[in-house]
């Protein structure tokens, strides 16, 4: 009960923060929330189940294009497009998982990386349909939700907040469920879990599919809210980003991805005032985190403060 109250408070705080900030930062917060949704999806696989993927850009992009292409080519509306995005991400993850989950550890990382790279190259190859490297702007018809124009600040923020909130609460419910317990068991000791009657392959496939669904939803939301889809979102960089957020905020915590996304954004924002070398910052953050704080901020807190989900 206390846990649910705390997480609802986080959501309320985010909503209030959006309206207290300037329009510029309101849009930034919307962007953070969408990327944090992506990172929450990543966290299900990596943080809770121990599946270190380097291919989540594929699931993000699958959602982005599953939503964006029908809007662009067929004039689909935003709400069904979001649904398509979620399904697209889930399907891509399921398809990759069926093959990639036969491997583990380093091989799993490389296999997911290669599938994602193949997906990126496929977007380039079919550039007549996908817009290739340059991508495409989404027409205004596909950026209306319940009568509101998503290209304006307030509706955009509210939509991002709602998508984040649903994923946030769904993640909390999932990790506190029986299935959540099984996920953690697989992360902690797969061999032991198997001897408790748990089928590692199907469980991981289920997790990866859910993870892909959240990533796809985030990808679709990103395209619809910010009006653009492009192949750059399928590059390895978009597989690294959620990993960085999760590592920074704390793997295997519900609020970690959000915390990581906010902190990384602030860090880059602060650094841009002195230098444009944001890539260096991302790189240094990765190295420092792995070296000194592999559990992330919330993870380090949790070892002191038990009971944080």
């Amino acid at each position: 009960m206390k846990t649910w109250a705390a997480h609802l408070a986080v959501l309320a705080l985010l909503l209030a923060a959006g309206f207290l900030l300037s329009p510029y930062h309101m849009t930034n917060l919307a962007r953070i929330l969408v990327l944090a949704t992506f990172a929450m999806g990543y966290n299900l696989a990596f943080g809770y189940t121990g599946l270190l993927s380097l291919g989540h850009a594929l699931f993000f992009a699958a959602g982005m294009y599953a939503a964006g292409l029908p809007i662009w080519h067929a004039g689909l509306a935003a709400l069904p497009a979001l649904g398509l995005g979620l399904a697209g991400g889930a399907f891509a993850a399921l398809a990759v998982g069926v093959l990639a989950l036969r491997t583990a550890g380093v091989s799993f990382m490389i296999v997911t990386l290669m599938f994602a790279q193949a997906g990126y190259l496929t977007l380039l190859y079919f550039n007549a349909t996908t817009g290739g490297d340059e991508g495409f702007a989404l027409p205004a018809t596909g950026r209306r939700l319940f009568g509101a124009d998503l290209s304006t600040d307030v509706p955009r923020f509210l939509a991002a907040w709602a998508i984040f909130a649903v994923t946030f609460l769904a993640t909390l419910a999932l990790v506190r469920s029986r299935f959540g317990r099984v996920m953690v068991a697989l992360r902690e000791n797969e061999d032991r879990a198997r001897m408790l009657g748990i089928n590692p392959f199907t469980t991981k496939l289920g997790v990866l599919t859910l993870s892909g669904a959240a990533s796809g939803l985030a990808g679709a939301a990103y395209a619809i809210l910010f009006g653009y889809a492009g192949a750059s979102f399928a590059t390895i960089q978009y597989s690294i980003l959620p990993m960085l957020y999760v590592l920074l905020g704390g793997a295997g915590t519900v609020a970690g991805p959000l915390l990581g996304a906010i902190l990384m954004f602030m860090l880059i924002e602060a650094a841009t005032e002195v230098t444009s070398a944001w890539m260096f910052l991302v790189g240094a953050a990765l190295v420092i985190l792995v070296l000194f704080a592999p559990k992330g901020i919330l993870g380090a807190l949790r070892t002191r403060l038990r009971g944080l989900p």
Partner: peptide, 18 residues
């Protein structure tokens, strides 16, 4: 193995930026 992959990804970004 897994930590070094993450670390070398970090190195990649740092070298590219440099």
């Amino acid at each position: 193995p897994e930590a070094t992959i993450v670390a070398t990804i970090g190195l990649l970004y740092m070298l590219q930026q440099a």
